[in-house]
């Protein structure tokens, strides 16, 4: 484990905690895309099928459990919590899941490292994670006022992806035979989707004004 990987995982963890903090303490999910959260729950459910078959480390297993547990509980909160669900922007969050899920599944069936159930599902989760943020970005663009916690949540998610790229560069030079084209390309695509958001995030931070994405 290198410093970039650890920093990436911690940023990812922080993003989830920020979102849970908003939902649990403020009892609001305004500006949060349920579509994106459902896609993440699916990403983790399909990626971590190996949680019962392969043991890598205690750290690995614990983190997997946290990401699975948090993503499903966030979905539960937005859908079913008596108070939280009332703040959900249903009319604005209209992105259709299947437009992302079906192409990712087809791609995973044709482009993968090994044709086994677990491996295809794992590859599907990589492709889906790369684009899962799109409903959230669309929602942010429609929401005129983005609150601090939602902005930080998206920023931390983007930072996590960026740090993983540094982790791969580091591993490429330090570990023999560390070549994972599918992971790398999906990861770079995912990070690029945040480029526009990052630009406006830093602008608003620099000028000390509320974050707003242009329509």
């Amino acid at each position: 484990m290198n410093i970039f990987r650890l920093a990436g995982d911690m940023t990812h963890l922080a993003s989830v905690l920020v979102l849970l903090l908003k939902i649990h303490t403020i009892k609001s999910c305004a500006g949060v895309s349920l579509k994106t959260q459902e896609l993440y729950a699916l990403v983790f459910a399909t990626r971590y099928l190996d949680i019962v078959t392969d043991f890598i480390s205690v750290y690995n297993t614990v983190m997997k459990l946290i990401f699975l547990g948090s993503s499903f509980s966030i979905v539960w909160y937005i859908r079913h919590h008596r108070v939280v669900r009332r703040s959900y922007d249903k009319d604005q969050d209209t992105f259709r899941h299947y437009l992302l899920m079906i192409p990712c599944m087809l791609l995973a069936l044709f482009v993968h490292e090994k044709f086994t159930f677990k491996e295809v599902m794992w590859t599907f989760s990589l492709y889906l994670e790369a684009v899962a943020i799109l409903p959230q970005l669309v929602l942010l663009q429609r929401t005129r006022n983005i609150d601090n916690l939602t902005g930080q949540y998206v920023f931390l998610l983007g930072a996590y992806r960026g740090l993983y790229i540094f982790n791969w560069i580091y591993r490429y030079f330090t570990e023999p035979h560390f070549v994972h084209w599918i992971t790398w390309i999906a990861g770079v695509v995912q990070t690029l989707l945040y480029a526009d958001f990052f630009y406006y995030y830093f602008e608003s931070w620099k000028n000390n004004v509320r974050l707003q994405l242009p329509a």
Binding site: R5, D9, H12, D50, D54, I56, S57, N60, M63, K64, F67, E113, K114, W122, Y164, N167, H177, F178, V179, T183
Partner: peptide, 10 residues
Amino acid sequence: MEQPQGHDEL
């Protein structure tokens, strides 16, 4: 190349 223990990243 494949890693012996499967995927070690999250």
